[in-house]
Structure formats: C-alpha cells, structure tokens
Amino acid sequence: MAAGSSIDALGQFELHPVLGALGESLRFSQSPMMMIVAAIVVLAFLYVGMRPAAVVPGRLQSAAEMCYDFIHNMAVDTIGPEGRAFFPFVFTLFFFILAGNYLGLLPFSFAFTSHIAVTLALALMVFCLSIIVSLKVQGAKFFAHFMPAGAPKALAPLLIPIEILSFLSRPVSLSIRLFANMVAGHVMFDMFAAFTIMLAGLGFFGDIIAVGPVVINIALMALELLVGALQAYVFAILTCIYLREAVAH
C-alpha cells in the first residue's frame, strides 16, 4: 500500500498463487479462489434461503425470491418471452459479478472483476452467445442489421463498417466499463487508506487530519456498494438487450 513516501495503489491487483505449490502448479490465484467463494455465496444464499420452502416466506427466503423475480422480470421484460430461456444465464452472470464486486470490498479480499481478463472473458461470452443466438434465430438476416433499414444504399460503404465497428466494440465497452469502475474504486480506497497511514506519521496534527481520509473511505464504501450493484445491473441489462436483438426476427 504505502511504501515509504510512495503509494502502490495497483499492487492490490497482483495475482499470487494460493494453496502453495498446488496452487502454483494449477495457476490457482486469489482471483479464482474468490470466484469460488462468490459462487458458494450465491448458491448458499439460494439454498439456505429457499430451504424452508414456505408459502409464507421468511426474510431470507423472501430476499431469495425477490432476487429471482428481479432477474426474471428483467430478462422477460427486456428480451421478451424468449427471455425465460436465458434467465438462468442472466441470473448467473448478474450474481457472479455482484458477489465478486461486493466480496472485493471486504478486507483482505480480492475483487476478481477488477481484472480486465475476467471482465473481457465474461463480455466475450455474452458477445459470442448473442452472435450464436442471432445466427440460429435469424440466419443470414443477422448480417442485414449492419445496414440500417431505410438508409441510402450509397452510404453503405460508410455505414456498414461503422455498424460493424459499433457491434465489435460491445465486448470492449462491456468489459472496460466494469473493469474500470472496480479498479477506480479500489485504487481510491488504497490511496485514501495510504493517506491515513502517511498522515498519522506526521505527529499530533497528522493524527487529526488522518481522520479525513478515513471518513472519505467510509463514504467511498457506500459509493462502491452502489457502484458494485449498478455495474452488475448494467452488465446484466446490456446482456439482455444484446440477446433481445439476437432473438428479434
């Protein structure tokens, strides 16, 4: 974090092997470990929450059902009736990202969504899925979307490359949006935490001023809670929008 008079805010994103030699040989770092934790948290939330299976639900069951309904409505309202088929995928995506974002806020934890490789992989998965669904549902008509309806044919040489570029930029924007938001939040956490430590070393007045960054970090935590949910929502809703375009005839 703070080494001497410098701040290493990016060091927190470095990957280290866990589980010793086994982790080293399996390339198993803290990032996949937190992915497993996120998956366990999501599954535990649903399994434990739904264990009473009561007609009149308790608080945890009600929360699990609300989450189910929230994503189900999002998928069906955005994609249409075909959205039911994609609901488990959107649910998995949303809660995997949400759990990753929130787990990353815990001390000594790691936000795997702060790695572009992970967010890009997720975005490419969505991108490829939407292409496969488009080709399956629309066939060759899928390519007609690259020429906007009603546009003069003379503009085709200009419009088609723009549309293709716009289409190809989807996974880039999708992945960078999530990655950048998470990185920015964690860097700010690290910076202000480092400020606190550095100021605390300045003596009496430093100790007093060092309260400032702590307060800012508390506010940042609230902001990151919002950003974590918002980014998961944006990722999921954009996935639904891409899939809606894919299933549209």
């Binding site: 990957l15 390339r27 990032s31 992915m35 790695h115 572009i116 910076m191 300045l202």
Partner: peptide, 30 residues
C-alpha cells in the same frame, strides 16, 4: 496529503501483465 505523498506512483497495471500465467489462469478457472 498530496504534499505528503509526492511519490505516489503506478508501476504498471498487473491486470495488463498477460505474461503472468495467473492472469490467463484465472480466466480458465473463471
């Protein structure tokens, strides 16, 4: 604070170090 930490620096982003096997490894695991 900025005066206190004049040497705040970023030594490259570990996320972009694709030579690190753990970066790609996490994708496979993920």
């Amino acid at each position: 604070m900025a005066m206190v930490a004049p040497g705040a620096r970023a030594e490259g982003m570990p996320q972009l170090d694709f030579g690190n096997p753990y970066v790609i490894g996490q994708v496979v695991w993920g």
